[in-house]
Design a binder for these strands. Structure first.
Lengths: 238, 238
DNA sequence: TTTTATCACTTGTATTTACAAGTTAATTTT
DNA sequence: AAAATTAACTTGTAAATACAAGTGATAAAA
């Protein structure tokens, strides 16, 4: 294991409990052992145990309630990956289809780009691709993704058909999204958008520009979204 | 008395430092007094001071660096999700104005309401008010807030003119927003919206429905937003 | 039976003490 | 003068202790 030796006690306990929660040992809604029990179990003092629990609260794995205990809350937030919520019913995975409009290709960044770029990003160029997502065969959002072409071997030739972008990044490149920023607007559909989303020109479209921070230092992923929110909403937690 | 008396010490210090930072006493990039200095200044012990600083870190008012100190970072987010970003320049507080369209009043919940309500919420009724926010005298967003009328003494008679809602909730009722969910849509402006936001009917409007979770168990704050995103964007981090 | 009170248990706040580890600047040595 | 060392800071981790405050179940009283 990589450097688990000098990890502080509270962090060790945090990792243990985190693993127990995500693995389902403590199901959602159940109570964690009390602070005093955790002290006895792991040979720690209460301030240390509380420090570990504070981290779990911060990452919203648990909610604490005075007089009651530490309640396990729903498993991790989907990192702002905007989920879709239909106005009629929940959308199962089986109804969601992805169409590749433009295959991943290496090109120069647009100038100006929606976010400010570093010199390194600018020089490296980007991998760009466009996708259309359909729910029940109806196009719902149109997605343009820009990834800096820095240490991304064979990315452009990968098959995106059935795997999520984030799954490929995580499993193929050990890249995980750890946060980001986004800008939202409502805009009228232009010719290109109206064609892809099959709406009239001028129809209100939800426009999202996102800059996603990753666990790789200085490596960001950019994405532009055009969303037909007539029958669906974009949902998110914060 | 609206409970400023039994506020814990660490929270008092948090509020003091927070005020000092937002008021510009400690400018961005500068160092806060060291933990030991804060102990001496306020007659507290280091764990208590550290607890206060932890809160400031959590809310990203400061960044701590071992061996150096607590560095004041950029003034943040009102509540993480809702800052406005102009397409031309940053928006200073001096250019932001709030207009009360409907004063806080106790009434029954709309049926159906945008989010599902518990029986307790439904029975208690709600405090509802509507505000219009202007940037440089131009209306930018229209805001309808619903707060359950549960243990909120004298809330309806408070003056909202110059204080942020969240500031009143935090200082007057010890209520803090700890998260939430939201749904976003792009919709055409109807008659009412177009009147308030001074746009043509049918103009694309960003519509946000939010359910905000608080530190008070089972207590949620609901808000509906209509945003004219022609010249501004809604920005958020995740 | 219903209400009230108590008790055991939970987390919340706060003090005190100690040492580890990172940063910076002054001092000493080369 | 330049490099290395030291000293004096800073925050980080961790222990032991105490009491306050909220919760829930049990026991006592009405």
């Amino acid at each position: 294991m990589v450097g688990a030796k000098k990890m502080p006690q509270y962090k060790k306990l945090y990792e243990i409990l985190r693993k127990h929660i995500t693995s389902g040992l403590y199901p959602e809604g159940s109570l964690l052992p009390s602070e005093n029990e955790l002290c006895a179990l792991h040979g720690l003092t209460r301030p240390t145990v509380r420090h570990a629990l504070d981290q779990l609260v911060k990452d919203s794995y648990i909610i604490k309630q005075q007089g009651k205990g530490s309640i396990v809350s729903k498993l991790p937030k989907d990192i702002g990956i905007l989920s879709i919520h239909g106005s009629t019913s929940a959308i199962g995975k089986e109804h969601l289809k992805t169409l590749i409009i433009e295959k991943p290709a290496i090109k120069a960044w647009d100038t100006p780009f929606m976010f400010e770029l570093t010199d390194i990003e600018r020089e490296s160029g980007c991998i760009c691709f466009e996708r259309l997502r359909l729910v029940n065969e109806i196009p719902v959002f149109y997605d343009i993704t820009h990834i800096p072409n820095i240490n991304m071997p064979r990315f452009a030739s990968r098959n995106f058909k059935n795997k999520s972008l984030f799954e490929i990044l995580r499993t193929g490149y050990q890249i995980e999204i750890i946060g980001g920023e986004q800008r939202l607007k409502a805009i009228p559909a232009d010719k290109r958008i109206s064609k892809h989303l099959q709406v009239k020109e001028g129809h209100p479209i939800l426009h999202v520009e996102r800059k996603m921070k990753t666990n790789r230092q200085g490596f960001y992923i950019y994405s532009t979204l055009y969303f037909n929110s007539e029958n669906h909403s974009v949902c998110g937690t914060f």
